[in-house]
Design a protein around this nucleic acid. Structure first.
Lengths: 253, 253
DNA sequence: TTTTCCTAAGACATCAGACATCTGATATCA
DNA sequence: TGATATCAGATGTCTGATGTCTTAGGAAAA
């Protein structure tokens, strides 16, 4: 039944079939369609009746998916009129944050720990080139770790550093990347720009963090800069949403 | 039908009846019940069948409400098991921000403006006493304004200041509260702690901001402190979510 | 001709009941 | 004792119908 949502049912016995709940697949499918321009900005979607028929699902299930998309501001629904693709936000504003993940855990009175999963040297992909403004041949060191609080995994971290920044003697098992960059590479990180994004279940990361399948994750994608405003570290952190809450400390300039 | 959700149907002809969609009322009702401890932390809710019967609504409508509550991390649902009240987050971390609303609008290349709605002096309510740690007899000055960008309303602001802080000559039409506090009351605001919260339609505020009924609002509730770490200003800002996007600038200490 | 009002079509909102699938506990058998 | 079978209960999904809102267009009035 869920094959209508894409990717082809013929592959079901070869690649892992999509076990996630149907309404989640519908959400992804609709987001994808909007992303790909199947439905353009401010454009009207087919009626619920037609759309459900197209996707091969019931209207009730489709409506649960549409509710979420409405909640996430992806679409706008108007009673008696129709459902429309929402336009993108216009303004932007900076928000400032302080401490490191380790500090956050420590401040909560718990013992921080680290589990190393993998580290490797890869050629820069398109995303890396954009982030670091580096040549295509540049090699990027990628480190994947899990942070723990009193032994319980709470944050999943991916860190990327251009290889030329790191010293030859670089040890992948070193505890603090900030420390290495500061002491050995003499690159002191002074600030970072982060984007905040909540996600639901993540096929790979949720099990690693021992999440209930329903526990949401908060993603912080951050570009770190040194004193010369040069990008030195890109990191993606997945926080267990039921363990972390963020508030804002605003400062006058 | 919606009378089962509380507040009493007998009043329908006297007070404005709740025209909002049923699933929204259900969300509020369930949040309220959780808040009031009707359903305690980690406790199992009644089955969807029973709960729908209790509330006098269909299971489909209840499920749309539960979906949102699940999305908002208020509840956790487990297929074949049940629905549970989610536990509150454990850790907390500060996030720092910079500019004022006026600056944000100006930085977007638009002309900021202000519309005064109302200002009054009220006796402190329980919430104010908690925020300002002031005596019950304390009077609080409340100011309501709308901020505009190129004439279009984009932010709704409520500001509260204990009366004794303001000078006798205080003019309610003064443009900048920060300016008054700094120049006339000699209370320089150095930082603020803010909580971030998204909401959907707000019966009173959405129309003022000329929102489509479906446009979400981002709420920043902020307590402002002076150099002596004394609370001087509490403000609530409602941003039109389709006009503003926040990212984070993090700084090393 | 222009304006006002009414109506019907189409879209989302809600309902009622049924079946499917998953989970956990109990009972059963080797 | 331990693995397996079964069952009750809960959420997931489907079906088809009715209720309510919005809008367009036509009929009636000015």
């Amino acid at each position: 039944m869920s094959d209508v949502l894409g990717k082809g049912w013929r592959m079901q016995m070869f690649i892992k079939s999509d076990n996630r709940h149907l309404y989640l697949q519908v959400i992804d499918r609709l987001k994808q369609d909007i992303e790909e321009g199947v439905y353009k900005e401010k454009e009207k979607l087919p009626s619920e009746f037609d759309l459900a028929k197209q996707l091969g699902i019931s209207r009730a299930t489709l409506r649960e998916a549409l509710r979420i998309l409405e909640e996430e501001n992806v679409i706008i629904r108007r009673h008696g009129v129709g459902t429309f693709v929402n336009s993108k936000p216009l303004f932007t504003s900076g928000i400032e944050q302080l401490n490191s993940v380790t500090d956050m855990i420590r401040q909560a009175g718990m013992k921080p720990g680290t589990i190393f999963l993998r580290s490797s040297k890869q050629e820069a992909v398109e995303e890396d080139i954009r982030h670091f403004s580096c040549p295509q041949e540049e090699e990027i060191v990628v480190i994947e770790r899990v942070r723990t609080a009193n032994g319980e995994p709470v944050v999943y971290c991916i860190d990327k550093v251009p290889a030329h920044i790191l010293p030859e003697t670089f040890s992948h098992e070193e505890e603090s990347i900030f420390h290495i960059l500061n002491e050995e590479a003499h690159r002191k990180i002074t600030y970072a720009v982060a984007e905040i994004e909540p996600i639901g279940y993540h096929e790979k990361i949720s099990p690693i963090l021992e999440c209930e399948p329903e526990t949401a994750l908060l993603v912080l994608k951050q570009m770190h800069y040194d004193e010369l405003d040069e990008p030195v570290l890109f990191s993606v952190n997945y926080f267990k949403a039921d363990k972390f809450r963020f508030h804002v400390l605003r400062k006058r300039l």
